[in-house]
Amino acid sequence: MWKIIFIVELLVNACIAFTGFYIISKIIHSTRFSSYAVKSLIIGLATGLLGVVLMFKGIQVNDSLRMDLRHLPLVLLAFYGNRFPLVVATLIIAGSRFLFGVTPQAFIAFVSIIAISTGMIWIHRQLLNRPFRQNLALNVWALLMITFAVLINLGFNDASLRLLLATWTIGLAVGVLSSMLTLDFQTLNRQVELYKQSSERDHLTGLYNRRVWDTRTAGLEQEGRIYNVLALDIDHFKHVNDTYGHGNGDFVLQQFANILMEETRPHDITVRIGGEEFMILIYDLTPSKIIKVANRIRERIAHERFQLDGFPDITVTASIGIAHGKQIHIQHMNGLADEALYTAKQQGRNRTILFNQLDQQSIAASHSSTETRI
């Protein structure tokens, strides 16, 4: 009879573990959390809860012995390298052992869980680029620590040997299966991320593409926030292509894009629209501040030495048109930024022109540091 109970409980525990792994992995790969600390805490709590459930559920080995798979959730976190969640989960799982009573056996179990997590951190570092071997090593390390705890608590006898035989057999089997599940899930998420990047990123510069711009700016007029649309264009870029070749032209575009990424904030949206045309969405800056930002970018570009293949370094300049406004449809703001950019080109290039939709006036910032109204 107990053999049937053993098989049923084994399947139930495996299902609980695999389901928990799936949910926790989804949380780990989720990008919906605004705070990394909150996300890490949730991962740690969820993993600790899974370990406690597996500990209380357990598997009936025979009429007098039970085992559990509480170590498996810790393997998952160690594999992903989530240290803070691992600490949280370890304390929850280790501490919950005292719910069965504050005994020497409970203290040994507590220490073994701490040792499991500590060793896992080291194993993760050593086998970082060998995922399957790392996962297998994490499981073996956990089982070794469990073996020491069992031998200390039960001694070396038939009962402890039977328990260890079941622990190693089931632990390795479920551990390997869970490792394969984790690796498959990680591979799937990497492929999804690659597909997402290929659909959102410009293949040459790595900046966002026009599709992302249209998606992120849809409905801006409903947000009620002041925002700025910057339209940027490399001056005389056709001359660069004609003189040095399109390969070097692409190299210049890549270096230009790197400057834009370095000179903008992480939450600003910087895109390559096409050719030598770029756009940036920047929230919440006043006209005077956005002109300073634009001029900083423009001056950085003008002073940069752009490397070429087979030719000496060159310098290029950029013209920038800005539309500043609030609760205005993005298509209208795009048009205003393009008009301001065209004006900058007409006035001699290497300058910034801002159109302030809020008070219906334009401000020109020339290649010098002075600003004049037109």
Rank of each mutant, 00 (worst) to 15 (best):
T317E: 08
N209L: 02
E299Y: 11
R125Q: 15
I92G: 00
Y36N: 13
R201Q: 14
A173V: 10
V52W: 08
S35M: 04
G321T: 03
N62D: 15
I330C: 06
D214T: 13
A340M: 02
S178L: 12
G95D: 01
M180G: 04
T372R: 14
R349A: 07
E200C: 04
N82I: 12
T243R: 12
G175P: 01
L285R: 07
A365H: 14
T372I: 13
T31R: 15
I234T: 01
V176F: 07
D309C: 09
R190M: 12
T90G: 00
N356R: 11
F306H: 12
I5M: 03
D268S: 01
I282Y: 02
L41R: 10
G101W: 00
R349H: 05
C15H: 08
R305N: 15
F84P: 08
S64F: 09
L172G: 02
A218S: 13
G310A: 02
G58M: 01
Q360I: 10
I273V: 14
A340R: 04
I291D: 03
L220N: 08
L144P: 01
F251H: 15
V87R: 08
L204Y: 04
A137T: 04
L143Y: 04
R210V: 10
F256L: 07
I152G: 09
V12H: 04
T182S: 15
M67F: 06
H332A: 11
D63W: 03
R130L: 11
G155I: 00
S366F: 14
Q357T: 10
Q60Y: 08
Q357K: 05
A17E: 02
E277A: 06
D359I: 01
H71D: 08
L49G: 15
P287W: 08
A166H: 08
I146Q: 11
W213Q: 02
G249W: 02
W122Y: 14
Q254K: 14
S112M: 08
M180D: 08
H324A: 07
G310R: 02
Q197H: 11
L128H: 11
P131E: 05
H239M: 11
N135S: 07
I374W: 06
I121F: 07
I328F: 04
F237T: 06
M1T: 07
V252Y: 07
F100R: 12
T147V: 11
E223M: 14
G321V: 04
Q361V: 11
D158A: 15
Y283Q: 13
